[in-house]
Amino acid sequence: MQEKKIIESSSQLRDLSEPMIELNGVNKWYGDFHVLKDINLNVGKGEIVVVAGPSGSGKSTMIRCINRLEEYQEGVIKVKNIEVNADVKNLRDIRSNVAMVFQHFNLFPHLSIIDNLTLAPMWVYNKPKKEARDTAMHYLERVNIAEQADKFPNQLSGGQQQRVAIARALCKSPDIMLFDEPTSALDPEMIGEVLDVMISLAKEGKTMVCVTHEMGFARKVADRVIFMDEGQIVEENDPETFFNNPESDRLKLFLEQILAH
């Protein structure tokens, strides 16, 4: 009873000018395991949403459903009013607007940095090579890594690779960016450089959904922080209220655990 009130009361905080991502009554099962329970979430244009929660809570699964890396069984997901389903044309349109940055970077090790970035523009969007390379160099400079353009992924540090991954995501000029624990695989001293890039993207007005444990980032940048546990959204609030006045017991417990150090 208590928790339902929380979600309803925070709806006034949403920026409804243009719904970019809509999840309505989304349910997902892995076999018998109910992994996403009745997810309702709207993300407006330019909103920065951070999703937090213990591991296994379904956060990664949820954002993977948005660009159909995972499929859902019940409910509707729409991206810029296009439904996320088995229609291949829809998928193409959605994936050209939604970019994803992974926990383990997933750069293509057999291609150089610049080739990693020009791959999609050249082969999916049929851009001429010169244009693709110019765009690529622009974004490599944007993330401060232009001098590594001809190196290969395995020659770069983790932080550098993740910045390249972000540049690669930016090359298709997406409206929406999904981040799946982008700093969890990095050594502590490299987390800062990646977060800096993400903050500058947020300032540019990109719509971002971030699954992350970096609460400092959430406090600084997020419009909304969402707490997920056991497959459902438990609490949703602006960062101030979320961290300083958690309402649900589960969130209180979670915050105690991660802020203990």
Binding site: A86, D87, V88, N90
Partner: peptide, 11 residues
């Protein structure tokens, strides 16, 4: 037409 664009149908 959208029937044919369904990836399951294509499969």
């Amino acid at each position: 037409m959208s029937f044919l664009r369904n990836e399951k149908v294509r499969g």
